[in-house]
Design a protein around this nucleic acid. Structure first.
Length: 456
RNA sequence: GGAUAGGUGGCAGAGCGGUCAUGCGUGGGACUGCAGAUCCCAUCUAAUAGGGUUCAACUCCCUACCUAUCCUCCA
């Protein structure tokens, strides 16, 4: 398998422990409703985890939940409740949304506040090694002591414009130094530590969590491309300072942003559309396909038109799939892929999860199937169906229709009655039968003198 | 100012040193009592501009211009 690493470019993937992939993806800060842009990252890595599993890897997918942070505290203050009420509410909302997007590949959602001992232990070790110093408002990491700081993002510390966005804190040794522990301010939640009451910095949560589950290094680290600097640089600096190892993660994968009207969709710009809003008018499958049918690293332009367009495309795949189900009598065969199509598709996916190219190939296959379906035997249909099912096991873009509803025998009988009416040119009756079946979830299609049907 | 990723047909969007994906849209055709679905054909001699390398560049190199993201809140 080849995976494109943010720093090294496309490289052959070698897992650290044979057959095992430890993957960590930056999860949300639970202070608000997730928006569409956030969802893209989680849908993508859900696919990655599932695909790697179909390739035989035992994947441990770990995601953090930042449940203590300035924004959570601010939110709690705004609404006059406490931070736990806020983080609990948005955590469970996040989980609901993940569920409705079909994201079920994560092994552990790790809440930062449950790892306070590990966080304090990391800070302690960093301090013992001389990487951390105290000011009157917190403990900071000396970025200049860690020589590789900036390597991931290609940044040169001396060219970083201090205060480009955030006010310079004069008490720090270097404007780039970041907090690993923030001392308690009046009214804020706090934990005890050897340095006094306070709470952890943002970056230390993740390294504490990953060290706890994976140790000092692991295979894949994923997240949105806006986290490359400084968040992921900080993680690398913290963990490698402690471990002395040459890497934190073997591969760094970053998913592109979602743009809306020429700008990044973000909470601070207030130009975001929440995912539950989109889910009101689009199915889980449509949303997943929309994200997955594009290169994961590119910026995506979000619009209703684009979403609608990709839904049209998906409908073609779904319709073909439904026809195959009927043709194959529901029997799928994974081992009858005589043309080696799934092998070809796998080769495409093995090339840095090239889902865009993958779907281009799926569309070609769809056209071929549609061309041949009328004269296709059940065995071939079952073989194609096997490919679709395999694809769906990691893409999650097809609805599997249940056999519930009107029994097949009754449908067949009604169709022959309707066709008799048609022969007798009693079209009002035949159309009425079609309409009744439609209202009961059966779509009829007359082709080449034969009436085919499928469940809607 | 620095860093990163890009600029492809009406639109969205890949890959690739020669054969120019894929989808959507639009127009036409086939099949149909109608509808739907599907197939076929067309839209297509697409590549920000200017240089260079090459037998050959959309693909590699250089310059300019433009866009997005990051420069310590962000997925």
């Amino acid at each position: 398998m080849q995976i494109k690493d943010t720093m090294k470019g496309k490289t052959e993937f070698h897992e650290l422990h044979k057959g095992r992939v430890n993957m960590f993806v930056c999860g949300p800060t639970v202070y608000d409703i997730p928006h569409v842009g956030n969802s893209r990252v989680y849908v993508f890595f859900d696919m990655v985890a599932k695909y790697l599993r179909t390739r035989g890897y035992s994947v441990f997918y770990l995601q953090n939940i930042t449940d203590i942070d300035d924004k959570i505290i601010n939110r709690a203050a705004e609404e006059g409740s406490d931070y736990q009420a806020v983080s609990d509410r948005y955590y469970s909302l996040y989980m609901d949304i993940m569920k409705s997007l079909g994201i079920d590949s994560v092994n552990i959602y790790a809440r930062a506040t449950l790892y306070m001992d590990e966080i304090i232990s990391q800070i302690q070790r960093l301090q013992d090694l001389g990487y951390v110093y105290a000011t009157d408002d917190g403990l900071y990491f000396r970025i200049r002591k860690f020589v590789d700081y900036g390597k991931l993002s290609g940044q040169d510390i001396d060219h970083i414009e201090a205060g480009a966005r955030v006010e310079v804190n004069e008490k720090k040794e270097d404007p780039g130094d970041f907090a690993v522990w923030k001392f308690r301010k009046p009214g804020e939640p706090f934990w005890n530590s050897p340095w006094g009451e306070g709470r952890p910095g943002w970056h230390i949560e993740d390294t504490a969590i990953t060290e706890c589950h994976f140790g000092p290094s692991y295979d894949i680290h994923g997240g949105g491309s806006d986290l490359i600097f400084p968040h992921h640089e900080a993680e690398i600096a913290q963990m490698r300072a402690i471990s002395g190892l040459p890497i934190l993660a073997s591969v760094w994968m970053h998913v592109g942003m979602l743009n809306i009207n020429g700008n990044k969709m973000s909470k601070s710009l207030k130009n975001f559309i929440t995912i539950d809003q989109v889910m009101r008018s689009h199915s889980r499958e449509e949303i997943r396909f929309y994200f997955l049918n594009s290169g994961y690293r590119s910026t995506m332009i979000f619009s209703d038109a684009a979403l609608k367009e990709s839904s049209e495309t998906l409908k073609r795949i779904q319709t073909t799939y439904d026809k195959l189900v009927i043709k194959a009598g529901g029997r799928a065969s994974l081992y009858a892929d005589r043309q080696g199509i799934s092998q070809k598709l796998q080769g495409i996916m093995d090339n840095d999860f090239d889902s865009r190219e993958f779907f281009a190939e799926i569309m070609k296959m769809t056209t071929e199937i549609n061309r041949a379906i009328d004269s296709m035997d059940a065995e071939s249909a079952a073989s194609y169906l096997g490919i679709f099912n395999w694809m769906n096991s990691f893409m999650g873009i097809l609805k599997e229709k249940s056999d519930e509803g009107i029994p097949v025998k009754l449908v067949d009988d009604l169709i022959s009655l309707r066709n008799q009416m048609r022969r007798e040119k009693m079209f009002s009756v035949s159309d009425a039968i079609r309409e009744i079946l439609f209202r009961n979830g059966i779509i009829l299609e007359d082709r080449e003198g034969v009436t085919e049907w499928r469940r809607s």
